[in-house]
């Protein structure tokens, strides 16, 4: 496609398989995508589709035991798969940082939030105590925490969920990473707070010239915040493309089902929702066909026997994995 050096992140044929008591569990399978600089990509999928495993694998955060990672993750030219802990540690914070879903578990409850930001600055950037404190307060201000000087001394438990998530973002931004991985950064927050945090991420992305991977199960979150989205199902990409194309011209039945089954504010009361029967497959018992076939109303014999690979759709950069793709000329009626 475009010049390789243009891309900040290139993921190629990435698979993560856990060895479990029930056999190998392919949580992430054959995933390829890339991400330009200053771009936001959304990763959407239902619970268990492998979003968290994928983002952790990209960061090189998988535990060393009982897991095998194959493929390649090139982060600004650095190969993450198989890299040593030391090497990855040098990249964490400066190249890539992560915002986790639950701010309470990613903050140390018995340490003042200021100290937690300081830590990163002093260890990673070798700042002096005063400099680190000044920068920490600057960061708190950057993420929109009112009266940052006082809050510098607060403990995580004294902050609301939204404030905590801002602190987590401040910590992630401490060493000015080029890529921010946000795993469900707003799940569990209220809509008004969610809007604040998403706006903040957007604004910071522009201001600091970062790229963002926004992982979420909520299609609403990615609709207006991303330039491209990846739809995952059972550990694989089933559709990828520009956000607008995926929403308006999706070709894969699962994407459609996902869009149609989410209730909409603009629906009239008592609108009957379109549902997908059943629920996502057990990753230990995947069949060789399309993983969506058992729930798909378009499924044919071929779907049950052979797995569809990603194929290009009409729009550039848009591809989908389906043997019986939905027609293209449906206009916008389905969205």
């Amino acid at each position: 496609m475009t010049d390789v050096s243009e891309k900040l992140l290139i993921v190629e044929d990435l698979s993560t398989t856990f060895a479990t008591a029930g056999g190998p569990l392919p949580a992430v399978a054959n995933i390829s995508f890339d991400l330009g600089r200053n771009e936001t990509i959304g990763i959407v999928g239902e619970s268990g589709s492998g979003k968290t495993v994928l983002s952790r694998t990209i960061m090189g955060l998988q535990p060393r035991t009982n897991v095998s990672v194959t493929g390649s993750v090139l982060l600004d030219g650095n190969e993450m798969v198989g890299a040593s802990e030391d090497f990855k540690r040098r990249l964490w914070g400066t190249e890539v940082a992560m915002v986790f879903q639950d701010p309470m578990t990613s903050l140390n409850p018995v340490m003042r939030i200021g100290k937690q930001i300081d830590e990163a600055l002093r260890v990673r950037l070798g700042m002096s105590k005063q400099d680190a404190k000044a920068r920490a307060i600057e960061l708190l201000e950057l993420v929109g925490i009112p009266s940052p000087v006082q809050r510098y001394k607060a403990y995580p438990g004294q902050l609301s969920g939204g404030m905590r998530q801002r602190v987590v973002i401040a910590i992630a931004l401490a060493c000015s990473p080029k890529l921010l991985m946000a795993d469900e950064p707003t799940t569990g927050l209220d809509v008004t707070i969610q809007a604040q945090i998403l706006n903040l991420l957007d604004e910071l992305k522009e201001r600091l010239h970062m790229s963002v991977v926004l992982v979420t199960h909520d299609l609403g979150v990615v609709a207006t915040r991303t330039s491209r989205i990846v739809v995952m199902y059972a550990g694989r990409i089933v559709e990828i493309g520009a956000t607008r194309d995926v929403f308006a011209n999706h070709r894969m039945p699962y994407t459609r089902a996902l869009l149609e089954s989410s209730p909409k504010v603009s629906n009239a009361s008592h609108t009957r929702l379109i549902t997908i029967p059943g629920r996502p497959p057990n990753l230990l018992k995947l069949t060789q066909g399309c993983s969506f076939a058992p729930r798909c109303s378009y499924a044919t014999d071929k779907c049950h026997q052979e797995r569809p690979e990603l194929q290009a759709a009409d729009q550039p950069g848009h591809s989908f994995a389906c043997w019986n793709p939905l027609p293209t000329t449906r206009g916008d009626s389905a969205t």
């Binding site: 008004t192 929403f247 504010v265």
Partner: peptide, 21 residues
């Protein structure tokens, strides 16, 4: 209502966000 996110890329970005908590 303004903060509710519609799964639609053409939905207006929430013009005004409620500040504070």
């Amino acid at each position: 209502l303004g903060a509710a996110l519609e799964a639609d890329p053409d939905s207006p970005m929430n013009a005004q966000v409620l500040e504070g908590e």
